[in-house]
Design a protein around this nucleic acid. Structure first.
Lengths: 217, 217
DNA sequence: CGTCAACCTGACCAATTGGTCAAAAGAATT
DNA sequence: AATTCTTTTGACCAATTGGTCAGGTTGACG
């Protein structure tokens, strides 16, 4: 799903990619902190240390830039669910998925926030994504979960709500990081706390749907 | 916590309250749909069918209006947790809390979205609330949960993460309602679906923390 | 009824901001 | 070296928007 990285063919090509990456990374942060309307092209330009007109050379409109930022986190999330296909038993498949989503919440907090923002406001820009890609993706995972249920590997649950719970719980650590940090004495989670959060979330959810686990507890 | 409703003393007083309520309700919707910066005083005025200057009579600045909107949902949430104090056993206390939070997600989706938006952006306006009220509230509930754990009524879990899971899961149905509706054939949940979601969420969480339940399953 | 305070409103303004453009600078190619 | 294409950039503009204000209207109250 994610485009593989290829070697640049020239100095120009290499610079172009660096600039694009720089703009996208900066825009992600600014959009996350201020929302679509609150983020200004000038602020993104300043953050990337580029003249504003240069941004418009690479991304004709603010919406173009925004859309690419949103698409990126979306594709990262889709890829995180490959364990659904490669792992046969629900403990491994779901556990791996949840852990990976927690990792992404830590490594891509800005992207997650931009996505949340977009959906909260009714997904005006990426509405089509929800109706096509996300719907297909979700349907196929639901089938897998339903199969586990039919095989008695997990308790009866509506797969939809299980997915929502995984999404909301994992993304909460990115989207509400400020609230969580405040309740953590004003500092963000450290390595150990992230590990503990991941374990705790995984445990409660897996136990909550009655997954038959290899290691008891 | 929520101010009790009192009778208006005069026609003026009554009109004043109606207008305030109308503005707040409209503002809540507009802020939810467009974010703080994206919402315009003009749009709120139009939504409430009032001239813009009239808004500024009741709320001197956009930020004043916004703050009141955010404070309202916050207080509604705080109140929803009274079951922590009135119910002795975790099944009733947590179950009631989760169900109440799901109800609020349905009845106050706009407020929830405004709050989410605010926190995602680093809580620039209501930062003080997080550090004072929310922190105290959270600490007191954590104590209760820790006591249940010590008494063996629930499995060992970090109370903090349990609260985060409850918050994120329940609020997800409000904040991401657009995504959920899209995956629901393009239509919002009906009564039965809300009931099912509530039951499903409650079940998974309570089972996930090993609550000893009266009625099995 | 008369007075006063609360309330309402159209017109206006200063500041911000997405986007444009023409011209300059730099890389690639012949 | 000359030519062509890509990239960079400062200056600029039209549109939006939060907030103001002076003057009008309405309800409360003696």
């Amino acid at each position: 799903m994610l485009a593989p990285v290829e070697k640049p063919k020239s100095k120009r090509e290499g610079l172009r990619r660096e600039t694009l990456a720089l703009i996208l990374a900066t825009a992600e942060r600014i959009f996350a902190d201020h929302g679509f309307k609150g983020a200004t092209m000038q602020a993104i330009a300043d953050g990337a240390k580029l003249p504003k007109a240069n941004l418009h050379y690479y991304f004709p409109t603010k919406q173009d830039l925004y859309r690419q930022v949103v698409e990126r986190i979306f594709n990262i999330w889709l890829d995180a669910a490959e364990s659904f296909d490669t792992q046969a038993n629900p403990e491994e498949a779901l556990g791996t998925y949840i852990r990976k989503k927690m990792e992404i919440s830590r490594s891509h907090p800005y992207g997650s926030k931009v996505w949340a923002n977009e959906v909260i406001h009714g997904a005006p820009i990426i509405h089509d994504y929800l109706e096509t890609t996300l719907r297909e993706w979700t349907d196929s995972r639901i089938e897998v979960i339903a199969r586990w249920e039919a095989e008695g590997l997990i308790d009866p649950v509506d797969p939809r709500h299980l997915l929502y719970m995984i999404w909301s719980t994992t993304q909460h650590y990115a989207d509400f990081s400020h609230q969580i940090a405040t309740l953590n004495g004003g500092v963000p989670f450290n390595d150990a706390q992230w590990a503990q959060a991941t374990e705790c979330v995984t445990n409660i959810i897996l136990k909550g749907i009655g997954v038959k686990r290899d290691a008891p507890n």
